[in-house]
């Protein structure tokens, strides 16, 4: 993959990692809005998957930034290093909704049947794409 293509790939996946849990296949919305009668504060009750989506926003942002750096930097070795870091990040994309935070366990919940498989898919695609790129960069260097 050439520089433009690999960077566009990382940025695209990064954007999807941000957008999937928030807009495309959103996680479950906050369940209860309890109006506290004393001071009229509204309390939201968030499910697990909400925190997963927050974490994925962070991970996706990191990917977009790395993607932009990949676009700007020509050095093969630096690019190789950034790609290796992306391997770990790809694992995080999958680990957050499964091990680290998780999503709602019920098979009827939007986050379980929509967001989770989409994130796993994105993680897999990123992983394969990055491996190909690392292989390519290693041959270059």
């Amino acid at each position: 993959m050439n520089r433009f293509l690999s960077s566009a790939f990382v940025i695209l996946i990064g954007l999807l990692v941000i957008l999937v849990p928030t807009y495309i296949l959103p996680v479950c919305p906050p369940t209860e809005i309890m109006a506290n009668s004393h001071d009229h504060h509204i309390t939201y009750k968030f499910m697990k998957c909400h925190w997963t989506s927050q974490a994925e926003i962070g991970i996706g942002t990191a990917m977009v930034v790395i993607g932009l750096i990949l676009l700007l930097i020509k050095s093969t070795l630096i690019r190789l290093g950034l790609n290796i870091s992306l391997v770990v990040i790809a694992m995080f994309v999958a680990a957050v909704p499964t091990i680290l935070i998780g999503v709602c366990p019920s098979e009827m919940m939007a986050c379980h049947i929509g967001t989770l498989p989409a994130l796993l898919l994105l993680s897999g695609i990123l992983f394969i794409g990055i491996l190909v790129n690392i292989f390519y960069l290693k041959r270059l260097s």
Partner: peptide
């Protein structure tokens, strides 16, 4: 009603 966290 939803019965607890993460259930609809």
């Amino acid at each position: 009603l939803s019965a607890g966290c993460c259930t609809s």
